[in-house]
Amino acid sequence: MDYSNAELGIVFEDEPQWAGDAAAVYHWAALYETEYWRTLTTNTVSPAFATMASPEVQAWMQQIADTNGSLQAEVGGVFRVDVRDVVVEGDSASVIACLDYADATFADPNGSYTPDQVGFGGVSHQELTFLRVDADAWIVQTSTVEGKC
């Protein structure tokens, strides 16, 4: 299944080939990335976070939306995601994703900016951790972006 959404401007570069729990975790990771991008492009926290993310992740998304809203930030273009690794250990899981903002656009009332100018240069290395909440549902516990892929 391709989780890319041309209308929203998100492209998943990988071809998911996982099965079972790993496929379920991939689904939740793709949903997370989609709703993260929706939050960035609308300056409004996606309501999906209320059911798919920890209170800490929800608070972080609210902070992003509030900051971008106060700056009158306009984010658009294309956000590319490459999920490189899904590891499931019982009721917990982790995902490594590479986030590429090279084709994203950034602007505010003062002008337009490159991804490098707003801190999104290069391909970012992200780790997501998940906790199983029922047979096929997982919630994002943490989202950490450190370094480059």
Results as ranks from 00 to 15, higher is better:
Val45Cys: 03
Leu131Gln: 13
Phe79Tyr: 15
Glu89Thr: 14
Phe106Pro: 07
Tyr32Ser: 03
Tyr26Gln: 07
Glu146His: 15
Leu40Phe: 04
Gly121Ile: 11
Leu71Trp: 08
Arg80Phe: 03
Thr34Ile: 05
Glu35Gly: 02
Tyr36Gln: 04
Thr41Lys: 05
Val118Ala: 02
Gln126His: 05
Asp21Trp: 01
Leu131Ser: 10
Lys148Met: 13
Asp85Ala: 06
Val118Ile: 13
Asp108Lys: 04
Val83Ala: 05
Gln63Phe: 00
Ala93His: 01
Thr51His: 06
Ala107Thr: 11
Trp60Met: 14
Val45Ile: 10
Val78Tyr: 00
Leu71Ile: 09
Glu33His: 15
Cys98Arg: 13
Glu35His: 15
Ser54Gly: 00
Ala6Val: 10
Phe106Asn: 08
Gly76Gln: 07
Val86Ile: 15
Thr42Phe: 03
Thr42Gln: 09
Ala48Asn: 04
Ser4Thr: 15
Pro47Ile: 03
Leu40Asn: 09
Gly76Arg: 04
Asp14Gly: 04
Gly20Tyr: 03
Gln62Ser: 13
Ser94Arg: 14
Thr44Asn: 03
Pro55Lys: 08
Thr144Met: 04
Lys148Arg: 14
Tyr3Leu: 12
Pro109Met: 09
Asp91Val: 08
Asp103Cys: 00
Glu127Asn: 08
Thr142Cys: 07
Gln72Phe: 00
Asp100Gly: 12
Val57Gln: 07
Ala23Met: 09
His27Ile: 04
Val81Pro: 10
